[in-house]
Design a protein around this nucleic acid. Structure first.
Length: 686
DNA sequence: TTTAGGG
DNA sequence: CCCTAAA
């Protein structure tokens, strides 16, 4: 007998605990070691890494705090009065060794009222809360029988049950008095709704759970519905004025499984300010990005939100430091590098120097530009510009609050522990985040494709329209935007495209650094989890749609044959070629001047001293690594040897090519001599 | 981290 | 330009 459970985790925010100094290097080491097989450098990776270990502890508590419920009202489409709350708390463990361990605890609802399962629950019908958050859920056919994780009650009570978990993690707000400096906690609130969906909201700030402020302003991201959710779509332009003052988080969710459901979590309301439904209704709904999520199966559509909201900002103190850093990155595959770059978590606001990828000496324009990322580990995105800062220092301040995580599946034997489930989820999230997301930048609705342009050149830095700038997470680069689903889905898990989501600048005009301004929260991706429970404790291939008598077959989903053991985690996300390409550095052909400099340096230093060559001739060209120079020399030699007709690209003066050959020959001879000295008679065999 | 070399 | 073994 096989039952399937389905959980959708929405990450509504993410609080990165302050990273102990000592663990930074450790994290970095880990980062470096990562290979392709674990393409999982991401926020959670960071968290896990810095934490060293994730402890999962489960504590039972029938209900959650009242404050949590308050939040439900904001975030849930339905009336959440009857919902059960489940709290998941992640917090760094400061006790003991101070190794920064992360504790995840959750409070699981004990009771579940079956009457809430009614599909026709009036609460789901466009009630006044629909505007706050909405997440389409599965239709009845997708329902799964929930066994224990959700209700722990008589399963027969539940005919059709889909559990949805919205996993929210929220970061701190600038204006909040609880910052990363405080005792940092990541709180995930898991709300079990009557329809069987569980929403996990997030703590908005670092305050402790007991602190009523904790949930304030950070509503649980998603609300399950019976399948129909009406909400403003992503990309819907929301007039700034529509945002109640003080709103600082807007969740944007978009899904197009059935093309009928997508949602935006509007800025969560404080208790005093409730978003008027009418406004939402009036709002023009427009879908900006239509690509699909990665999906495991067409049936699994629930979504999850992931919000990151921490601070990360590596700094480059000086040029030397920059070079050091650059060098250190060279061994990191770019896709991981991205996360690495954003992985530094600090308690104070700092700026990211946009070196390397953002500017080049030649371009110069953006050299002075910095971005402040206030949000998530690497990927954040709500944005706010600060013209005042901009005009004075040529800084562009951007704020990205959250991203959504692509859907993925988790498969575990029933005998697996909850702890391992949690770890698995963590791993899955990590995987999906680290697997090659691509950030797209939209300016005034148009995609900015040229990565080499500076913020100034693109107009980003001087467009004060808060709605002008948007970010989107995409599974793959623009090269092949359409078919994002890898063809090689021989895998049991078909994969949907990740739906790029866009966040638009909310109005932050007049906002100053350190203040809380309204800015949309961007949900970047969907994380769906597919949990299968096999009633035979033996981890046999689970795919038998089960138990036709007692359970509604609808609640069961057949799963392709697969070894459960082998697939503790089955991330839907497969590293597609597109994403690979997306991660590639942009091609920057060497100019003749650069070739000249290279040739000159090599003539002087010889081949085989590429670091010196780099320092000597390309020290200020941050985008040219010594590996690049070596490669260029290689191609130069090759170019010099082939006929001019065969050469491509910008023609290199023959004179230079001749020097290349000469130098190459000379230094090759030198190397041979050197080797001969060291090994006078290397090999007499033959 | 740097070098060297294949892809 | 990427990746990685080897130094």
């Amino acid at each position: 007998m096989v039952l399937h459970k389905r959980l959708d985790y929405g990450f509504n925010g993410y609080q990165v605990p302050p990273m102990p100094r000592a663990t930074r290097s450790a994290r970095r080491r880990v980062t470096f070691r990562r290979r392709d097989e674990d393409n999982q450098m991401c926020a959670f990776d960071l968290l896990a890494t810095l934490a060293g270990e994730i402890l999962l502890e489960k504590e039972s508590s029938p209900t959650s705090s009242n404050t949590s419920k308050e939040n439900d009202q904001h975030a849930c489409v339905k009336n959440t009065q009857e919902s059960e709350d489940k709290l998941v708390k992640i917090e760094p463990s400061n006790q003991g060794s101070g190794d920064g361990r992360v504790l995840i605890s959750e409070t699981v609802p004990q009771a579940y009222d079956r009457k809430h399962l009614s599909k026709e629950s009036p609460l789901t019908q466009n009630n006044g809360h629909s505007g706050f958050a909405s997440v389409a859920t599965t239709d009845s056919s997708e329902s799964f029988v929930d066994e224990k994780l959700v209700n722990g009650k008589n399963k027969d009570d539940i005919q059709s049950f889909a559990s949805k978990v919205d996993f929210g993690i929220s970061g701190y707000r600038d204006s909040g008095d609880c910052t990363l400096d405080c005792e940092s906690k990541i709180m995930l609130r898991d709300v079990l709704h009557k329809n069987g969906k569980v929403s996990i909201g997030t703590g908005a700030d670092m305050c402790s759970l007991e602190d009523p402020k904790f949930w304030d302003g950070k509503p649980p991201a998603l609300v399950s519905s019976d399948g129909k959710v009406k909400v403003p779509l992503c990309g819907d332009h929301i007039p700034h004025s529509s945002f109640p003052a003080g709103r600082d988080d807007v969740k944007i969710v978009s899904r197009d499984d059935d093309e009928n459901s997508s949602g935006c979590t509007r800025p969560s309301m404080t208790k005093k300010s409730i978003w008027p439904v009418s406004r939402i209704a009036d709002r023009r709904i427009k879908k900006i990005l239509a690509s699909k999520y990665w999906k495991v199966s067409p049936k699994l559509k629930d979504e999850a939100l992931l919000n990151f909201d921490g601070d990360f900002k590596p700094i480059c103190h000086n040029r030397k430091g920059c070079y050091k850093r650059q060098r250190s990155q060279m061994n990191i595959p770019f896709k991981k590098r991205k996360f690495f770059e954003c992985s530094s978590v600090s308690n104070s606001d700092r700026w990211i120097n946009c070196d390397g990828k953002f500017d080049s000496p030649e371009e110069g324009g953006a050299s002075g530009s910095c971005m402040k990322m206030n949000g998530a580990i690497g990927t954040s995105s709500s944005v706010g510009q600060h013209p005042s800062i901009l005009s004075r220092d040529s800084y562009v301040k951007l704020r990205i609050k959250s991203f959504r995580v692509p859907e993925l599946f988790i498969e575990m034997p029933e005998s697996a522990t909850v702890g391992s489930l949690k770890r698995t989820v963590m791993k899955a999230v990590t995987t999906i985040l680290g697997g090659g997301l691509h950030v797209g930048v939209l300016l005034r609705g148009k995609k900015v494709r040229d990565d080499n342009k500076t913020l100034l050149q693109t107009g980003i830095s001087h467009d004060y329209n808060p709605d002008a700038l948007g970010f989107a997470l995409e599974p793959s680069p623009s090269k092949n935007p359409q078919p994002l689903c890898p063809r090689d889905s021989s895998h049991m898990l078909p994969c949907d495209m990740l739906q790029p989501l866009t966040s638009y600048l909310s109005d932050s005009a007049g906002a100053h650094q350190g203040t809380c301004h309204a800015s949309p929260e961007l949900h970047v991706a969907d994380l769906g989890n597919f949990i299968e429970s096999d009633h035979d404790s033996a981890p046999s291939p689970p795919h038998t749609p089960v138990d036709k008598s007692t359970r509604d077959s609808k609640a069961l989903v057949a799963v392709p044959e697969i070894n459960v053991k082998a697939l503790a985690v089955v991330p839907v996300h497969q590293r597609s070629k597109q994403s690979e390409i997306a991660q590639r550095r942009i091609r920057r052909p060497f100019s003749v001047a650069e070739v000249e400099a290279l040739v000159q340096a090599v003539e002087k230093l010889g081949t085989g001293r590429w670091r010196d060559v780099k320092l000597r001739a390309f020290d200020n060209a941050k985008h040219r690594t010594y590996v690049d120079l070596k490669d260029k020399w290689k191609t130069l030699v090759h170019t010099a040897r082939i006929s001019p007709q065969q050469r491509r690209g910008e023609p290199v003066p023959q004179e230079l090519l001749d020097r290349v050959l000469t130098a190459h020959a000379y230094w090759s001879k030198q190397q041979a001599k050197q080797q001969l000295k060291q090994h006078p008679e290397p090999c007499l065999l033959i």
